[in-house]
């Protein structure tokens, strides 16, 4: 299973490296412009655009990872490997998860360093030390975003898998799968609405979402994961 992650990364290390370099260059550019209190120049905008494009590319790449296994010739290699469905899907999701966490940590550190650096130029405001309660909130927001992102990705994965499993022998499998995506997406929305607890306890500082809501999201993730890996394991029709 970890071998699969190894090859996911072996394939993309140049992309990651380029992304990190562009981000660092763009960051340096923005900081230098800000510290000189100049308005952004064209180069700054181009670099920011590049960073945005790389992030977008990573998003499509995340979707594309299972798409490639299901719809390209490489599927004949990946689905003949002696791996169970959950190992296969688990490796794909784990790779995405680790990438997002690494990216989050990297960007946070960069922003914090920027913050400390920029403070030198605005001496009136003393730098706020990193307070624990703020940190907890940031971490919570980050994990909420991550959880939602993985659920969104799994919804897409499940729909794609449906078109190559249950609907594989139908003529408009892909179209039906897209319909499935919409249905599942709506269903998840409904479930989170219904189960939403409205009891975010403001008396406890630093809690952004009640525990039942976390549980709902986690349950949705597990259901999506299990159903997708079951289909990949038993019903695949390349």
């Amino acid at each position: 299973m970890f071998n699969l992650i190894k090859y996911e990364w072996l394939r993309r290390w140049k992309f990651f490296l380029a992304g990190i370099l562009i981000f660092i260059i763009a960051n340096l550019e923005i900081i230098s412009q800000l510290s000189l209190q100049k308005s952004p120049r064209n180069l700054t905008i181009v670099l920011m655009g590049l960073v945005f494009a790389m992030a977008l590319a990573l998003f499509f790449d995340h979707i594309g990872r299972l798409y490639r296994s299901l719809f390209s010739d490489e599927g004949f290699l990946e689905f003949t490997l002696p791996l169970r469905g959950y190992q296969f899907l688990g490796a794909k999701i784990l790779a995405v998860l680790l990438e997002c966490i690494a990216l989050g940590i990297f960007v946070s550190i960069a922003l914090y360093v920027d913050y400390l650096y920029l403070n030198q130029f605005f001496p009136r405001e003393a730098p706020t030390p990193l307070r624990e309660d703020i940190l907890i909130i940031i971490v919570q927001i980050f994990f909420l975003l991550l959880l939602s992102y993985i659920i969104f990705l799994l919804t897409i994965y499940l729909s794609m898998t449906l078109s190559k499993t249950i609907f594989a022998s139908l003529k408009h499998g892909k179209l039906i799968a897209f319909g499935c995506f919409l249905v599942i997406y709506k269903a998840i929305q409904r479930i989170t609405e219904i189960t939403h607890s409205h009891i975010t306890d403001m008396s406890l500082p630093g809690i952004i979402m009640a525990r039942p809501d976390w549980l709902t999201l986690t349950a949705i993730l597990i259901v999506l994961f299990i159903s997708t890996s079951y289909l990949l394991d038993r019903k695949i029709n390349l």
Binding site: G75, F76, F79, T80, R234, K235, I236, N237, L238
Partner: peptide
């Protein structure tokens, strides 16, 4: 062959 290889059911 695809069925025996496991890529089709």
């Amino acid at each position: 062959l695809k069925i025996i290889a496991g890529v089709t059911q």
